[in-house]
Write a protein that binds this DNA or RNA. Structure first.
Length: 491
RNA sequence: CGGGAUGUAGCGCAGUCCGGUAGCGUACCUCGUUCGGGACGAGGGGGUCGCAGGUUCAAAUCCUGUCAUCCCGACCA
């Protein structure tokens, strides 16, 4: 019963849930809506963190850390911001427990009520801008380019492992600039970083675009995003970068003196990606045998499974493998030699496929005789037997090849599942029968967007940055439109 | 917060209608044979049946209450 996964085509949700659990990525915790990320899942997140962190630092950003708790009054300073987050905040009201009078347990001590409640951060703009006020006096203090790796809490009604949990891990960048142009450029620079990361590390092609008014971040002037397509035809917002204008500077009174000594409000940006990316990674590449990891993010890139008839053969295999493993490691390849005799080879094959290890090497008596090794690729499930002496080079090239191959496969999938339509009937039919991204003209009004959402569950995912202008008519209202936008059902 | 369902071994479930020795699969432990795609056989351990009351000679089963979780909506990275 515990063997195998449900088929993707039968029940995508069940497949996803089982995969996340069986590949040792994460599980639901006993705490409502929260998730336990298991060591294997976390090690993938660490690889993602490391790659992103380097990209941020290479572009001049530094890490810092701000408080988990936000005084309630901070949250109310920016009107749109509080509107957007008020409905999903965890609130701390007391700071002490005491024993029940009847000795049956403990209770919140009513005497320990806080003067001002504390909000567990759903995002950190408010607490950070309240701090920036003290950091910024002159143009010489700008820009501030800060990122923090943290957990945030959003009390979601319905949760799904990685995709939507009540608590999640993320990075959130918060920058302050002297000019609007510089802040806009920062917003777009981060969007490029996110897109590069998604495509080159995760192997997930993404659309780059700007959100419509109704999908915009609470408190932002513009929200840019990367949108990925999952194998079930639904879209996943994989990262956002917000141009905040002077909204938070205004709310927290953050002003600077320019070169002429004139006071002006600071321009801001904020941006983030979360553990949701892991959900996207899983849904973009995995198959019915389990996870398929891009080599650049795989904690184990190559696993070696020895095959022996009796224990004495281990020695010969060790002797053979020792220099090979050394050569692979010196090429920077992460190799795991699974020597356990508590599990059989077949079991291990299935296990590492479930966990998405890109390349598996198997070596047994037959190979010892022929000086060969069996090489199996996770993404294509192809196997071949090759000479062992050049295996390090073969593996290195194959890792490269897999990295590109899974991106190409995902890109082709997205291209097949992106449809341009000119009528609402086609729109509904494609959405129903095929799913995926649908490009269509839209009149630009929130009212139309809302009506389409209510009727079809599809929303405008984004307005593509590089979409060509053309004359057209809104598929819903028939009113004039200058650009097609991307619709989809979304996670 | 509306609609629906479920709480029984680590996990997945049956048993509940019709009250009477706590069951199956899997995982786990031992021994043997196996080991190039999730092995097989034999034996073994593991449960206050979500919690609290009630009815009864007797409750996983019936009644009342309560808590929790999941699914479908609304909300969302």
């Amino acid at each position: 019963m515990s063997k195998g996964l449900p088929k993707r085509a039968d029940d995508y949700s069940a497949w996803y849930n089982e995969l996340v659990k069986k590949a040792d990525l994460a599980e639901n915790s006993a705490v409502r809506g929260c998730m336990v990320i298991k060591p294997y899942g976390y090690s993938i997140w660490e690889k993602m963190q490391a790659a992103l962190d380097k990209m941020f630092k290479d572009t001049g950003h530094s890490n810092a850390y701000f408080p988990l708790f936000i005084p309630k009054s901070y949250m109310s300073r920016e009107a749109d911001h509080v509107d957007g987050f008020a409905k999903e905040c965890a609130v701390v009201t007391h700071y002490r427990l005491k024993n029940n009078a009847d000795g049956s347990g403990i209770e919140v001590d009513p005497a320990a009520k806080l003067e001002e409640e504390l909000i567990v951060r759903p995002t950190s703009e408010t607490v950070i801008w309240n701090t920036y006020k003290n950091w910024i006096q002159s143009y010489r203090d700008l820009p501030i380019l800060v990122n923090q790796w943290a957990n945030v809490v959003r009390w979601e009604m319905r949760t799904r492992l990685f995709l939507r949990t009540a608590e999640f891990l993320w990075q959130e960048g918060h920058t302050a600039h002297a000019t609007k142009e510089e802040a806009v450029e920062e917003t777009l620079k981060i969007l490029r970083i996110y897109a590069t990361f998604a495509e080159q590390f995760m192997g997930v092609p993404v659309l780059r675009g700007v959100k419509t008014e109704s999908e915009r971040f609470a408190g932002a002037v513009d929200t840019y995003c990367i949108e990925a397509l999952m194998q079930d035809g639904k879209a996943l917002q994989a990262g956002t970068s917000h141009f905040l204008g002077q909204n938070f500077a205004k709310a927290f009174d953050v002003k600077f003196a320019d070169k002429e000594g004139k006071l002006d409000l600071v321009w801001g940006t904020s941006w983030g990606v979360s553990t949701r990316l892991l959900g996207g990674l899983i849904m973009a590449h995995s198959d019915d045998n389990g996870l398929v990891l891009p080599p650049k993010l795989a904690p184990i890139q190559v696993v070696i499974v020895p095959i022996v008839k009796d224990k004495s053969q281990y020695e010969m295999i060790d002797e053979k493998l020792d220099p090979i493993i050394g050569k692979m490691k010196s090429r920077g390849i992460s190799v795991h030699y699974d020597k356990r005799d508590t599990h059989k080879p077949g079991w291990k094959f299935a296990e590492y496929e479930l966990k998405g290890v890109p390349i598996r090497l198997a070596i047994g008596p037959r190979d010892l005789e022929n000086n060969t090794v069996e090489v199996a690729r996770r993404d294509t499930l192809e196997k071949e037997t090759i000479g062992i002496d050049t295996i390090d080079q073969v593996v290195e090239e194959m890792l490269e090849e897999i990295q590109h191959s899974i991106f190409d496969k995902a890109l082709k999938f997205r291209e097949r599942n992106t449809t341009e339509v000119d009528s609402y009937d086609d729109f509904k039919q494609i959405l129903e029968e095929k799913g995926g991204f649908i490009k269509a003209h839209w009149d630009g009004t929130p009212e139309t967007e809302d009506l389409i959402k209510n009727e079809t569950k599809a929303t405008v995912r984004c307005i593509l940055l590089d979409e060509k202008e053309e004359d057209g008519k809104c598929v819903y209202s028939g009113r004039p439109s200058r650009k097609k936008v991307v619709f989809a059902k979304a996670y």
